Amino acid sequence: MPAYEVDGYDKLIAGMIQPIVTQSVIINTGQTAVIERGMVLARTGFSADGTWLCTPVNSAAAGAPDKVPVAVLADAEVDARTAAQRATAYVQGEFNREALKFGGADTIVTHEAALNNAKLYTKRVVK
């Protein structure tokens, strides 16, 4: 192993200055594909027990809540195509802006300011 190489480097996490905070969420049913780690999520409501209901953020979505990023999916993948699924999401931390994924045709440029306002700080990572 070469010097300074870290086995299993996670390209999503970009720093440890800000605490990483996670929360249980429910990914809404009806997703068009399996969503993967690093997907930026929008909160569309709350379940009866107060758990956040989430969907991938998408600025072209019809509903206003679908346009506001509040979390980043922590799980490797979640399949909510036919049924809602519980998942874990980061709700605070520092993230590699190039590793974040978005719904629709959105990019980091579309949501970077809103992510930072939500305590999801984006960083450029030098490889």
Rank of each mutant, 00 (worst) to 15 (best):
E94H: 14
E112Y: 08
T29Y: 05
D49L: 02
N28C: 06
P56M: 01
V57A: 08
T88S: 08
A84P: 05
V21T: 13
E36R: 12
A99F: 06
Y121A: 10
N58S: 11
P56G: 00
V72A: 00
D7M: 10
G93T: 03
T29S: 14
D75S: 13
V6R: 15
Y121I: 13
E98N: 11
K119N: 13
S24I: 03
L120T: 04
P2H: 06
V109I: 12
A48W: 04
R37N: 09
A33N: 15
L120Q: 05
G50I: 00
V70Y: 01
P19H: 04
A60F: 12
A113P: 06
M39A: 10
M1I: 10
E94P: 14
A76W: 01
M16L: 13
N58H: 11
S24F: 00
V40H: 05
V6W: 08
V40G: 04
G63W: 03
D49W: 00
N58Y: 11
T82R: 04
M1W: 11
A48N: 13
E36A: 12
V70F: 05
E77L: 08
L41W: 01
K67C: 12
F46V: 04
G30T: 14
P2K: 08
V126F: 12
R43S: 11
V6H: 09
T88A: 06
E5P: 00
V6T: 15
P2F: 06
K127N: 11
Q85G: 04
M16G: 14
V6D: 09
V68I: 15
L115Y: 12
V126S: 10
T82K: 05
L53Y: 04
H111G: 04
H111A: 03
K123H: 15
V57N: 03
P2D: 08
P65A: 09
P69L: 02
V70S: 03
M16E: 13
A87R: 09
T110H: 06
T82L: 07
G104V: 02
I17C: 13
K119I: 09
D75E: 13
E77Y: 09
M39V: 12
V25Y: 02
R43G: 01
G38H: 02
P65W: 02
F46M: 06
N28Q: 09
M39G: 03
I108D: 02
G38W: 01
N58K: 13
W52F: 15
L115W: 10
L115G: 12
R97A: 14
A118M: 09
G103L: 12
T82G: 01
V78C: 02
I108Q: 02
P19S: 10
T82Q: 10
D7N: 11
D66W: 02
S47M: 04
R97F: 08
N58E: 13
L12D: 00
A118S: 14
N28S: 09
R37Y: 07
Q18N: 13
L53V: 05
Q31D: 02
L53W: 05
V34D: 10
L100E: 03
